[in-house]
Structures are given as C-alpha cells and as structure tokens.
Simulated scan of single mutants.
Amino acid sequence: MKQQFLFSFSFFIFFLFFYCTTTLAQSPAPAPGPAPPRGPTNVIKILKKAGQFKTFIRLLKSTQLDSNLNSQLGNTNNGLTIFAPSDSAFSSLKKRTLSSLTGQEMVELVQFHIVPTFISATQFDTVTNPLKTHAGSGGRFQLNVTTSGSSVNISTGLTNTTISDTVYTDDHLAIYKVDKVLLPLDIFTPKPPAPAPALATTKTKAETPDEEEDEVHKDTSGAFGGLWGQLQNGV
C-alpha cells in the first residue's frame, strides 16, 4: 500500500513537471514593444571625441549652427550629412582666406559643408548632382560627388578632394572627414560688376557751352555798346 502511494505521488510530480515545461515552451514570446525614442544627437560632442576638428567646431559655434543642427536632427526624418574639414585642411588655406569673409559669408561657408539629407557610404554613387546644401544648390553653390570604387571625390569648382574617413554614422546622421575646406564659387570668386548707371544726356541751358558763351557775349557787347555810345556823345 505504501509503495503504491509513493508510485502514484511520483507519477503525479512527473506529470505536473512535464505539463508545466510543455506549456511554457509553447507559450508565444511577448511581442516587441515600440522602439525607444531617439536620444538627442550632439554633433559637437561627436567631433570632439573624434579629434582633428577644432577649427570646424569653433566655426559651428561662432555661427550658431551647432544648436541648429542638433535641433534639425531631432525634428526631421531626412537626417543630415556633414563633410567635416580637418584642422590640417584649414591650416593649408592661404592667408586671409577666412579673415576676409563677412559674417554672412562665414555662415554660408559652414552651411556649404552640410547636406540636409542622410547619405550612407554606399549611396554616393546614386545621388543626383549637384547636391543641395544648407547654403543653396546649383549655380555658384555647386557641390558634385563622383565615385570610383570605394573612393568618393568632391568637387566645388574651386576645390577637389576626397572623403578620407567616416567619422560617425548611424541611420540618421553621417559625418565624413575631408582633407580640404570646400570653397564655393559664390564666395571665393569675384562677382560680376554691376552695370554702370546711364549718363544724363540732357543739359540745362546754363550747362550748354554755346549758349553760355552767347549769354556772356551778349552781356559784354551790350555793356561795351553803351559805353561806346556815351563816348561818341562826348560824355
């Protein structure tokens, strides 16, 4: 009797264990929840961590474009692509290249290095030239990209350089290192001279030489004639 009870109890424990294990194994996995919200992306922190971009960081801050970029990254689905010149790229510029710029031109120069869409390293051979930048597109703000194998060349009409490294990339922001400052035509070539104002073709009576000479001659001859008349009359 005791053995039968122990056998029954052991069978019950085994059945309970088997049932629980099978039920848990067959339970569907919980559905994945929504993706966590994207945290704020700080372009300056990324560039500082990478090093070699102190001058570009100063320009972003002085033009107040740093906060503008971070705001755009949080409020747009298009993303951003930044071509960041290294410190050596700025050092290789001729003297007074930057110091001669106005405040507005400096803003446009920095904006020229920013494309308002995300471009991954594998998408450069599919983009449409000229690329649109924050400074503008086409005409005197041309930014053209060509690829040859894994090499990506950038041309502005004044600058030819290549992407030398990927500083940072996710699915929303791409920062690429370039070894030359991208100089746009609109800022660094002379503007066409403004047309000269048309010269006035009409002259006033006093400004006409012949009439002016006639007036002098008339006055002189009148005065001389009166004096001559007085002499003739014995005055």
Score class of each variant (00 low, 15 high):
Asp219Gln: 13
Ala135Phe: 08
Pro30Val: 14
Pro184Met: 10
Asp170Ser: 10
Thr133Cys: 04
Phe14Pro: 00
Thr97Pro: 10
Ala174Cys: 01
Val167Trp: 04
Leu173Arg: 06
Lys61Met: 12
Ala25Val: 09
Lys132Arg: 11
Pro34Asp: 11
Ala135Arg: 01
Asn144Lys: 15
Val167Glu: 02
Lys2Glu: 12
Leu231Met: 08
Asn68Asp: 06
Thr201Leu: 07
Leu80Asp: 01
Thr41Trp: 00
Ser221Phe: 11
Val110Asn: 03
Lys218His: 08
Leu60Val: 09
Ser221Ile: 10
Lys49Ser: 12
Lys191Met: 10
Ser67Tyr: 01
Val216Lys: 15
Gln232Thr: 06
Ile82Arg: 08
Pro195Leu: 12
Ser67His: 05
Pro40Trp: 10
Val178Met: 07
Leu73Lys: 08
Thr41Ser: 10
Ile44Leu: 08
Ala84Gln: 05
Pro197Ala: 04
Leu227Val: 14
Gly138Trp: 10
Leu143Gln: 02
Glu215Met: 01
Leu47Tyr: 03
Ala198Ser: 09
Leu143Gly: 01
Ile46Gly: 01
Pro32Val: 07
Thr161Tyr: 07
Thr204Pro: 01
His172Met: 05
Gly138Leu: 13
Arg140Asn: 07
Gln26Ala: 15
Ala29Pro: 01
Pro40Tyr: 12
Phe18Gln: 11
Leu73Ala: 13
Val235Lys: 14
Gln230Gly: 07
Ile13Lys: 03
Asn129Ile: 11
Lys132Ile: 06
Val127Trp: 08
Ala35Pro: 02
Tyr19Cys: 11
Gly33His: 07
Glu207Ala: 09
Ala25Ile: 14
Thr126Val: 04
Ser27Pro: 00
Thr128Val: 14
Phe11Tyr: 10
Phe18Cys: 13
Val181Pro: 08
Ser88Asn: 13
Phe90Thr: 02
Ile46Arg: 01
Gln3Lys: 11
Tyr176Ser: 06
Thr128Phe: 07
Pro36Lys: 07
Ser99Cys: 04
Pro40Ala: 15
Ser91Arg: 09
Thr21Arg: 11
Ala135Gln: 08
Cys20Phe: 13
Ile57Lys: 03
